[in-house]
Amino acid sequence: MPVSPAPENRPVAGAKLLGRFASVGLVATILYAVLTAIFARSDWLGLAPVEASLAAYAAAALFSYLAHKSFTFMSAGSHRSQAPRFVLLTIAGLAMAYAAPYLLTVTFGLPLAVPVLLTSLAIPALNLLVLDRWVFAERRLRDDGPS
């Protein structure tokens, strides 16, 4: 069984993981923005802006799953178990991105910047935790030994 990284190496490993996570997130965000613009302007596709955004989000989510699986977490776990977990996490993130602005602006009258900032910080942090501990947890157990 592989040995857990030495305690002095854990901060370095954590920083590398965070860097890979952030780079995948940045590329997925750019991909989403570019595809939304392309899909919304395409006469051939004929998508309204909301439809274009959803289609681009789905494409960016697929990229994100594959990149996190192969690059961020380097997981050899099965798609059968990891993909549905990723989909559930993505749906939860979308729900939070919808609920936070509604709750905080409509219900409590806060400026839109508050839920946007909260969502922009909370969703990536939650995603990192859930991807590491649940979606790609098989990788952690295999590579690092039991925690």
Rank of each mutant, 00 (worst) to 15 (best):
P7I: 02
R80K: 13
S120A: 15
D132E: 14
L118K: 02
P124W: 01
V87I: 15
L129W: 08
A122W: 01
L47M: 09
R133D: 10
F86S: 00
T72Q: 01
L103Y: 05
P101W: 00
L62F: 09
L121S: 11
L94W: 08
P101L: 05
L117P: 10
Y98P: 02
L17W: 00
R41V: 09
W44I: 15
A97D: 05
G145A: 08
V12M: 12
V12H: 13
L88M: 14
R133S: 11
T36S: 14
R142Y: 12
S42C: 08
P49L: 02
S147N: 13
V50C: 04
A76S: 14
G77P: 01
V135N: 02
P111D: 07
M1C: 11
R139A: 15
A59E: 05
P7N: 02
T36N: 12
I38Q: 05
G145R: 03
V34W: 02
A76H: 10
G19K: 03
L47V: 09
A67E: 05
L31D: 04
T119P: 06
F108A: 12
R139F: 11
Q82H: 06
A6F: 11
Y32Q: 09
F39N: 04
A122I: 07
M74P: 00
A137H: 04
P49T: 03
